[in-house]
């Protein structure tokens, strides 16, 4: 009888152990959903009109219009690409010292805190917001975009690289230290070989991200193909917009394929 009662009483254990917390989470989620949907302001009539416009937009992909604004597209594309290359190179180079400073096993506390602060600032704001500030400082054009992306690259690379440095196999670094190596030799022989593959992989990945981001910076005047796209959409030239989108997708795909290839090669 006891076994039977136990069998009857058995339930799979709930995800959250404490009953009150479980109900609080469920209730809270429900309450949030009601509130969020309740305060949602949507002009459904306007949205319904959009269906037809959306259809026209989709139709513009067949075929896209590369020709009529090719010069604009070309200019925007070149700006985006050059911006991507330079910002990745500068950002990656600058991220190395920041990463070394932000690795707790290498840097003394004051340096560590300073570098972590740099990383936090660079990662908090969306690139576009930073671009607005840099455009205000450096004027319109791709230079502001380049600086924005380089700045964002520093935060991204330094954070991940610092985590990687903190995760190295300590015995290898210890062995190098035991030979009487200097601090720089420790970096070059004990740490660099361990983190290099991931460093290269991350750089390739960041190149990828930088290109994607470069496509939106044009919206705030920081140069790149986003500007071209924005203009096309403003003029309701969906054919050109479709062409730009297809080019962006193609380049992102190529970048992704290349960065995947690089990452496999350095493993």
């Amino acid at each position: 009888m006891d076994a039977r009662a136990a069998a009857l009483a058995w339930r799979p254990p709930p995800l959250i152990e404490a009953a009150w917390l479980r109900w609080a989470v469920y209730g809270g989620a429900l309450l949030y959903l009601v509130l969020a949907l309740g305060t949602l302001e949507v002009n459904w009539q306007r949205a319904a009109e959009g269906i037809e416009r959306g259809g026209r937009f989709l139709a513009a992909f067949f075929p896209p219009d590369f020709a009529s604004h090719w010069r604009e597209i070309e200019e925007g594309l070149l700006e985006s690409l050059t911006m991507t290359v330079t910002s990745t190179v500068f950002g990656v180079i600058l991220s190395v010292p920041v990463a070394l400073g932000a690795a707790r096993n290498l840097a003394p506390l004051p340096v560590y805190l300073f570098c972590r602060a740099v990383i936090a600032i660079s990662r908090t704001f969306q690139e576009v917001i930073i671009a607005i500030l840099f455009v205000a400082m450096f004027g319109f054009g791709p230079l502001a975009g380049m600086i924005t992306l380089a700045f964002a690259t520093i935060g991204f690379m330094a954070k991940l690289l610092a985590e990687d440095i903190e995760d190295i196999e300590r015995s290898q670094a210890e062995a190098v230290r035991a030979t009487g190596a200097s601090w720089f030799q420790l970096l070059a022989w004990g740490i660099q070989p361990q983190v290099l593959p991931r460093f290269i992989g991350l750089s390739a990945y960041r190149f990828d991200i930088n290109f994607r981001e470069s496509a939106v910076l044009g919206l705030v005047g920081a140069g790149g193909i986003g500007d071209t796209l924005n203009n096309a959409l403003d003029r309701y030239e969906f054919g050109t917009a479709a062409a730009v989108l297809l080019i962006i997708i193609a380049i992102v795909l190529a970048c992704e394929y290349a960065s995947g290839f690089i990452r496999r090669a350095v493993q």
Binding site: N43, A47, F57, V128, L219, L229, I249, L253
Partner: peptide, 20 residues
């Protein structure tokens, strides 16, 4: 491949400005 800001740009043209 397409940044959310670009998606937003397109969707604003289609559905009009707003949270949707």
């Amino acid at each position: 491949s397409v940044n959310s800001l670009i998606w937003a740009l397109i969707l604003v043209i289609i559905f009009g400005p707003g949270m949707l």
